[in-house]
Amino acid sequence: MRRMFLRRAGLALLLMLAATALTFALVTAAPGNVAALIAERAAGPGADGEMIARIADELGLNDPLPVRYVRWLGDTFTGDFGVSLRTGKPISEEFAERIPVTATLLAGGGMLALFYSLGLGLWGATSNGRFADRILHGIALIGASTPNFFVAALLVIVFAVGLGWIPSFGLYGWTSWILPCVTIALFPGSVLARVVRVNLQEAMARPFATTGFAKGMNRGEVLVREALPNIAIPYITTFGAQFTLMIIGAIVVERLFGLNGIGAFFIEAIRFRDFVGMQAVLTLFVVFFVSVNLFVDLVAMLVDPRLRRARRA
């Protein structure tokens, strides 16, 4: 078990290094002369060749790429992501302000997706029948096909413009979080509801459920005590995958509702050719995705006694 985990962790670390090396090569080398860009930002269009050369020299932009990557890696490990070409502030400061915003969004969205999927899936399983099945399938399909930004627009039309209950833009107290979180929860929630429904249905057809009925338990008891533990593994793995995909929802929603999170920073960095900022955000994303996947693998191993036993044997 521990060896297995260490192996996975080692692979995850390698993947992080490889992915950051590739993004570093792409983002810092491919676009063109970053020194000229910095000089232009500092001195306007009149930046001369001498100034550009000096800046390139100061920042070590003339060194070979592997040297620059190792230097960048060392800086990043000490929490120094460099200075944003767009805002001129250290990126670590930007992150300190912005990570809480995106984290709140993801946490809120994740919780909503959890309640929504379990509620809908359990409802589908308790009212076993074609009707519930169709409704669930329809909701899941539409939820998984409607673009994030259209969902957000419809929510704004109904709740902010029509009913006037909630602000539609910016941050004014906790109600401002409702629409963004609902928006990004819809897609993962719909996919997860289907996972719950399908796996519960399958578990209810297994022998242990029949045993439960034979012992005199009613449908609800069998569902909760016998069938529910069996959906843990597919639910956790799908949840992990969907949770990482929610970052796309966050990028869209932050722009739409004017929230200053990591996603908004990423989009601004792209639009203003802030390659240092882009590299920092991409690194953050890689670390986030790979660690969530690793964590999900670990939890799956801890939760499932079958996997545990298989490792021990």
Binding site: A30, G32, L245, I247, I248, F266, R273, F275, L282, F289
Partner: peptide
């Protein structure tokens, strides 16, 4: 596959915004 396709596409749009492209 370590990053969602759309995030990669966004990053590449950033790379392509450089003068070389």
């Amino acid at each position: 596959l370590a990053l969602p396709s759309l995030v990669i596409a966004l990053a590449l749009m950033g790379v392509f915004s450089g003068e070389n492209f």
